[in-house]
Simulated assay, not measured.
Amino acid sequence: MEKSENLQTNDGSRQYYIPMEVTAETIKDFGINPSDAVWTKIGNKRKKVIMVLVTKEQYYEYMRPIWREDKREQRQEPMASLDKMYEETEYETADNSDLEADIMKQFMIDELHKALNELEEIDRTIMEMYSHDHSEAEIGKAVGMSQKGVNKRKHKLLLKLKTRLTDYR
């Protein structure tokens, strides 16, 4: 992704910069100081750029599509579901069973159920709907929250549950 900057000056005002790709020819033709050109990653490739001072409006106009794309990619990333959190807890056949591992798996499942039962009603609803593949927008409508609010709360809940279960892995 493209790197941009938002810097605060000594007087408290902000300066906004966005990258502009340059080549050796561009540097020469426009009299750009070669030391002003830096390497940064744009997309999947490293590019030589100069940071151009822009207005706040230009900065946000430039960054909004990038932020939207980042958010779209985040939403497409598969999140760990509750089912997947203890998918590996299925009991093995007796031929290759490890009694200690089976007991630890059962403790982990019990601890997960306790943790879920201790959640607030809204959090249990979010996790229940999420485990049944409902979208964040659908969950938000059901619990009276915005999609972004559901996303943040869901991430906090998953982290809380994962942290609680670390002793059982």
Results as ranks from 00 to 15, higher is better:
63 M>Y: 08
63 M>G: 04
63 M>P: 10
65 P>W: 10
65 P>Q: 09
66 I>V: 14
66 I>M: 09
67 W>K: 10
67 W>H: 10
67 W>F: 09
68 R>P: 00
68 R>D: 11
69 E>W: 08
69 E>C: 01
70 D>L: 12
70 D>H: 08
70 D>R: 13
73 E>F: 05
73 E>L: 11
73 E>A: 03
74 Q>I: 13
76 Q>C: 06
77 E>M: 04
78 P>I: 04
78 P>D: 01
80 A>V: 11
80 A>M: 14
82 L>A: 01
83 D>L: 00
83 D>G: 03
84 K>V: 04
84 K>S: 05
85 M>P: 00
86 Y>M: 15
86 Y>G: 01
87 E>Q: 08
87 E>F: 03
87 E>H: 11
88 E>G: 10
89 T>N: 13
91 Y>R: 12
91 Y>K: 12
92 E>N: 01
92 E>G: 06
92 E>R: 11
93 T>V: 02
93 T>P: 00
93 T>S: 15
94 A>K: 09
94 A>N: 02
94 A>P: 00
96 N>Y: 12
97 S>K: 02
97 S>L: 03
98 D>Y: 09
98 D>K: 11
99 L>F: 15
100 E>F: 04
100 E>D: 08
101 A>E: 15
102 D>M: 06
102 D>N: 14
103 I>H: 13
103 I>R: 08
105 K>V: 14
105 K>T: 13
105 K>E: 09
106 Q>V: 11
106 Q>H: 03
106 Q>A: 10
106 Q>M: 06
108 M>T: 10
110 D>T: 02
111 E>W: 01
113 H>C: 11
114 K>S: 04
116 L>V: 15
116 L>N: 10
117 N>P: 06
118 E>I: 00
119 L>C: 09
119 L>F: 04
120 E>S: 12
120 E>C: 00
121 E>K: 14
123 D>M: 03
124 R>A: 01
125 T>M: 13
127 M>R: 02
128 E>H: 06
128 E>W: 08
128 E>K: 07
128 E>A: 03
128 E>Y: 02
129 M>R: 13
129 M>H: 07
129 M>G: 00
129 M>T: 00
131 S>F: 13
133 D>Y: 11
133 D>T: 06
134 H>W: 07
135 S>K: 07
135 S>C: 03
135 S>V: 11
135 S>F: 09
136 E>K: 12
